[in-house]
């Protein structure tokens, strides 16, 4: 019968792709949605933040459903990016370029999230429209946010495509191609939603 082999690497990889979609990806969608509240005014954003802050077991949820999977996905992702080879110079086919971009945007997003959390969640200030408005008044911060949002949404959308293959959902060539188009539409839509929210914060309350 099948001899006992170590499957730890396999399990860690599968958990990495799963974590990227199920808690982390879902949280990204929720986060972009909440931020988009800013487009309808400071009051609606502040009320949305207030609702989130009154979720029961907030710290528990935050730690186990956001912080832990995000850290795992990020740190293990750095390892994946390090062990990958990069040969898009020699083989410049679209998918290989996206393979490189997936890893580049992953690293950008990792750095971005650390800075983003440091200046918001762990800054000790109340998460209000005014606080974000103040941060956005610095043009360097604003553009860093734009780059971060584009990188994160691309990494999520293209990661969905890859996830569908890793878990054996899209098997055939056509299914993979259609999924590629769909995920690129998801990227454009999510990036637009994120950028619109960023610029909503630049307007005075």
């Amino acid at each position: 019968m099948a001899q006992a082999q170590s499957h730890s690497e396999f399990v860690l990889r599968r958990l990495h792709t799963l974590a990227g979609v199920v808690p982390v990806g879902l949280f990204l969608l929720e986060h972009l949605f909440t931020n988009a509240m800013a487009t309808t005014g400071a009051a609606s954003f502040n009320s949305a933040v207030d609702t989130i802050q009154h979720i029961p077991f907030l710290h528990f949820i935050e730690f186990f459903f956001i912080f832990l999977p995000l850290t795992y996905h990020g740190v293990y992702g750095l390892y994946v990016a390090f062990t990958s080879g990069y040969n898009a110079g020699q083989y410049s086919w679209g998918r290989n370029v996206l393979f490189v971009l997936q890893r580049v945007t992953g690293v950008i997003t990792f750095v971005f999230i650390i800075y983003h959390l440091w200046t918001t969640r762990f800054s000790g200030r109340a998460p209000t429209f005014d606080m974000v408005h103040q941060l956005m008044s610095n043009p360097a911060y604003l553009w860093f946010m734009v780059i971060g949002v584009v990188a994160a949404t691309f990494h999520f959308a293209n990661g969905l495509w890859s996830f569908c293959i890793h878990w054996g959902i899209t098997v055939g060539q056509r299914a993979q191609r259609v999924t590629a188009y769909v995920t690129m539409v998801i990227f454009v839509v999510l990036a637009a939603v994120g950028i619109e929210a960023i610029f909503a914060f630049t307007r005075a309350a």
């Binding site: 082999q5 170590s6 690497e9 396999f10 990889r13 599968r14 994946v80 990958s84 040969n87 083989y91 086919w93 998918r95 290989n96 393979f99 495509w161 890859s162 293959i165 890793h166």
Partner: peptide, 12 residues
């Protein structure tokens, strides 16, 4: 070890 999970879908 070195199995299917090492594929990164570059599709080269």
């Amino acid at each position: 070890e070195g199995g299917i999970h090492e594929c990164g879908n570059s599709q080269n």
